Amino acid sequence: MESKSKNGRNLITITNPRSPISESYRTLRTNIDFSSIDEQVQIIMVTSAGPGEGKSTTISNLAVTYAQTERRVVLIDADMRRPTAHHTFQMSNRHGLSSILAQQATYHEIIQDTDIPNLQVLTSGPIPPNPAEMMASRRMSVLLNELRQNYDIILIDTPPLLAVTDPQIIASKSDGVIIVVDYGSVKKDAAMKAKANLENVNARILGVVMNNVKRKSGESGYYYYYYGQGDQA
């Protein structure tokens, strides 16, 4: 396993843990925890309706906040078309999730440490010709079951819901889904279609993160994360 000392993406939960934005991530984590009083929420998928809405930033910061509670956390980059986790955490993507699903390696061999205690990352690996088939494979189900035995929280970053079928496949294997919505750009019908796609596979929608909400005058440039019920998407 490989340890990295610098972060490629500015993770505010590390660089400014006392900021209002970092507190919003902790609130999101707490709300997810409280949503699972009666049912286990261990595998959490994070997605969006379209590209550029902030899902990868959200999942990376959420992973940090979970790790800060001393839970063992793994972040899986399952966006095999536009992977970002290896850039965020400045690590190699020579081997990753696709390598495991192609039976070229085990996760023990290629999972990587970050400089954040309790947080490890499974990058996407080489981009395969058949991502959707890989996500639907029995091997993916086996991998997730193995990870359940070794981690408290498993976070999965997927492609946007309206672009490909991969997220719906992963949602059916997850305990819950968070949808990230760019408040300033996403159309309501796109958000509703994304929600419907998840409901079609009986996914459990834990909530919606509203991104780029204007909090008050002078702060519109900041990200702001809001946790709400799934029916508010």
Score class of each variant (00 low, 15 high):
L62S: 05
S185E: 11
A171Q: 05
Q229I: 08
V208R: 00
M80Q: 05
I37M: 13
D152H: 14
A63D: 01
V74P: 02
A203E: 06
Q112E: 12
H108T: 13
Q68M: 13
Y25E: 04
R72V: 04
N10C: 04
G52Y: 09
D231Y: 15
K187Y: 06
I110E: 02
K173A: 13
Q68Y: 03
T65Y: 08
S19A: 12
Q112V: 04
S217Q: 12
D175M: 11
M45C: 06
S141E: 15
N211F: 10
E39W: 00
V164H: 07
I12E: 02
E23T: 08
Q120C: 11
S22Q: 07
H95R: 14
P20F: 11
N7R: 05
I169Y: 05
K216Q: 14
V180D: 01
T84Y: 00
R9Y: 08
T47Q: 02
G221S: 14
G52R: 03
S3F: 12
R204I: 09
A196T: 14
M1I: 13
S48L: 06
K195V: 08
I153T: 10
V64T: 06
V209Q: 01
E109L: 09
I154L: 08
Y107G: 02
I59F: 00
G221H: 14
I110D: 01
S56Y: 01
I59N: 00
G207Q: 07
D231V: 09
T158S: 15
Q68K: 13
L11S: 02
I111T: 06
M210E: 10
G230C: 09
V186M: 12
A203Q: 05
G8A: 07
D182R: 14
A105S: 15
K214H: 12
H87F: 12
L122W: 03
R26F: 11
F34E: 02
Q232E: 15
A233T: 08
T158K: 05
Q104C: 04
S35E: 10
Y224L: 07
Q168P: 01
P128G: 09
A105C: 08
L97A: 06
I14W: 07
Q149C: 03
M192K: 15
D166C: 08
G230I: 07
H108L: 14
P83Y: 01
T13I: 08
L101H: 07
Y66K: 01
P159A: 14
D38G: 12
A194C: 13
V41D: 02
P129I: 13
I178Y: 08
Q232R: 11
N7I: 11
Q68F: 05
D115W: 00
Q168R: 13
S5G: 11
Q168H: 03
A136H: 05
A132M: 07
K195P: 04
Y227Q: 07
L143N: 06
S141I: 08
G184A: 15
P167W: 10
L162R: 10
Y222C: 04
L162A: 10
V46D: 00
K193L: 15
P126L: 11
E133H: 09
G52V: 10
R139F: 05
N16I: 03
T106I: 07
K173E: 12
R29C: 08
P126H: 10
A67L: 07
K6I: 13
S3W: 03
N200P: 00
I116P: 06
E133K: 11
Q40L: 15
I59P: 00
